[in-house]
Simulated assay, not measured.
Amino acid sequence: MKHALLVPTDFSENAWVAAQYAAELAKKYDWSIQILHVYQTFSRLLATQEFKDEVSKHNIAAAEDDMEIFYNRFKEAYPDIDSTAACMEGNLNDIVLSLIDENSIKFIVMGTKGASGLVNVAIGSNTYELIRHSPIGVLAVPANYGEFRLEKIGVLTNFKDNDIDILDEFIARTSPSLKVSLLHINEAARRPNSEDITFWKEKVMKALGSNEVTYHDYEMVNRLDVNIPITYAVERLVEDEDVDVLLVSYTRKSFFRNLFSRSLPKVIANNLKVPTFFKKVD
């Protein structure tokens, strides 16, 4: 079975940018594309069944018309990519998780609104739930993303094994030839010593079987739970190391746990300039 990218869409321009990114990724690795639109079931206690049926018919027709326009645009832009499109009624989170379980999906690729953060992503607030629960993570693409490139990946690290896990998983799904940059955010005057940095780099290189690993950190002045410094620090790290994709993982015991449970997607996605792979690692 050919591997596929699942691209949920609401037919917006943000979703179109994500579809374009997914198409370039699919071309690079010879994957197929599955474009999905999920619309909500109409439910109101006082409404008659006849009225509910009429609303449902309208929603189905509107979704199928919009999908036809979106999918025709996609096929015209990428005629050589094996692709399908579907509209489904129900809950986005449940449907996507079911499709992941039943199909060979490499990544869920979704659009964001950039400065608005992932909480207001193009396809709705359920994206946050997908990031929290998807067993394969979510690859979020900023609305202002430009020319496709995938040569170097960066991972926000706190010298924990789950950082290696997400690197290993991403590389296993893509290519072992990708360069890796370890990105660390320091609290004021708490920079790791050179011996710890060297040890961690060597451990990562050994685990990945790669010598293409660099390390870069950024010192924050304020607490790590202050949104603006976190955003600025991540932006600087991404720009300084010129990474093409940022990897962010978390566990219940991780460095990013509190940030994620409160607003990590919004914080990191704010003014994001590169696609970011969010993955919960248990």
Rank of each mutant, 00 (worst) to 15 (best):
K2G: 13
H3R: 08
L5S: 12
V7M: 11
F11W: 04
E13P: 00
N14H: 01
W16Y: 06
V17E: 11
A18K: 02
A23Y: 04
K27Q: 10
S32Q: 14
Q34R: 11
I35D: 00
L36S: 01
H37F: 06
V38G: 04
Q40I: 08
Q40K: 14
R44D: 06
L45F: 06
L46H: 02
T48N: 07
F51M: 15
H58E: 09
N59M: 10
A62F: 09
E64F: 01
R73T: 11
E76L: 15
A86P: 00
A86I: 10
N91D: 13
D94F: 05
I95T: 15
I95C: 14
I105P: 03
I105V: 13
M110P: 01
G111D: 11
K113L: 04
V119R: 14
A122Y: 04
T127C: 12
T127E: 13
I131M: 13
R132E: 08
P135D: 13
G137D: 04
G146V: 10
R149L: 07
R149F: 01
K152S: 09
K152H: 01
K152F: 04
G154R: 08
N158M: 08
N158Y: 09
L167C: 08
D168M: 00
E169G: 01
A172F: 02
R173F: 10
R173K: 15
K179E: 09
L182H: 11
L183I: 10
A188L: 12
E195H: 15
M205L: 06
Y215Q: 03
H216C: 08
Y218T: 13
E219W: 00
R223Y: 03
Y232I: 07
E235T: 15
L237F: 12
D242H: 13
S249K: 06
T251A: 12
F255N: 06
F255W: 02
F256D: 01
N258A: 02
N258D: 06
F260G: 03
F260S: 05
R262A: 15
K266F: 04
K266V: 05
I268L: 02
N270V: 06
N271E: 10
K273R: 02
F278P: 03
